[in-house]
């Protein structure tokens, strides 16, 4: 049984009077792929934002390998080993594909202003090493992306932008990778290719744990080992997708009460 890497305990997030998340518990084991599903506004992105430090939960606790991380700044959380992508891809559009991944190596490089000016050789060598690492990573994630490494990121087609976001997040060598709707805006063929890429990434990193927010049920059925269902900021279910999809409350959340009774026949 793999040890737990990341866990949340009774996480609650209030925005003024609005409760975006109420008493949610979750855990993620090493090497596991966990799917987060639920209708729009269920609190999926809120959960990701709490874990990556963008939101500080109103109460509850997030622990990475037993160490509490809520209240830690986002850039420190990356250092602790959690990387993420965004639902609306947030690439550095006016920089090259390669530069995007090099920036992902930020926490593994050291040079500051004085190094850059007065110890140029060292700073350059460090950056060259980061560039070499980034190229290897791009090659591993997608050959097509590697061939476009000198293009501006904004010029990439949608599917490649998603891949680049994943490559950039992987550049920090995370223990946990959070993917926020990686397949949004993709057709079936692109989604299939994306699933293959994610499988390849996981195969190359058996210790990497993944949390994926997803709407595409094909992906949810095929990729995650386990899923969590959220609705109105609460956890409805937790388990393998084949079991979870049969639970009436889950069907209600997705299809509405009448739809669910139809589905159950």
């Amino acid at each position: 049984m793999a040890p737990i890497v990341l866990e949340g305990e009774s996480l609650t997030q209030r925005f003024g009077g609005l409760v975006a998340m109420a008493e949610v518990d979750f855990h993620l084991k090493r090497g596991e792929i966990l799917g987060i599903i639920g209708p729009n506004g269920a609190g999926k992105s809120t959960l990701l934002n709490i874990i990556s430090g963008i939101y500080v939960p109103s109460s509850g606790e997030v622990r990475l390998e037993g160490r509490r991380i809520n209240g830690v700044a986002p850039h420190q959380i990356v250092k602790r080993g959690i990387a993420r992508t965004f639902q609306s891809s947030r690439l550095f559009g006016d920089l090259s594909v390669l530069d995007n991944v090099i920036i992902g190596r930020h926490i593994h490089t050291r040079s500051g202003v004085l190094d850059a000016i007065f110890r140029r050789r060292r700073a350059e060598a460090e950056l060259a090493e980061a560039a070499a690492h980034a190229e290897g990573l791009l090659k591993a994630v997608s050959r097509g992306l590697y061939d476009q490494r000198h293009r501006a990121a904004a010029e990439l087609p949608q599917a490649d932008r998603r891949r680049l976001e994943i490559a950039r997040a992987l550049a920090s060598d995370p223990k946990v990778l959070l993917l926020d709707e990686p397949s949004s805006g993709m057709d079936d063929a692109d989604t299939d290719a994306l699933m293959d890429d994610i499988r390849a990434v996981c195969a190359a990193r058996p210790d990497l744990s993944l949390m994926i927010i997803e709407h595409d049920m094909r992906l949810v059925a095929a990729l995650p080992h386990r899923v969590i269902v959220l609705d109105y900021g609460q956890k409805l279910a937790d388990g393998p997708f084949e079991e979870v999809r049969l639970i009436p409350r889950v069907q209600e959340a997705y299809l509405g009460r009448r739809g669910a009774s139809h589905a159950q026949g």
Binding site: F86, L91, A123
Partner: peptide, 22 residues
């Protein structure tokens, strides 16, 4: 041409994404 310049450029393009790169 240094790590600092890249970090500044990242900040310019998308501050939130920059924070999430550490």
């Amino acid at each position: 041409d240094s790590r600092v310049g890249l970090a500044w450029n990242a900040l310019r393009a998308d501050e939130l994404a920059a924070r999430c790169q550490g």
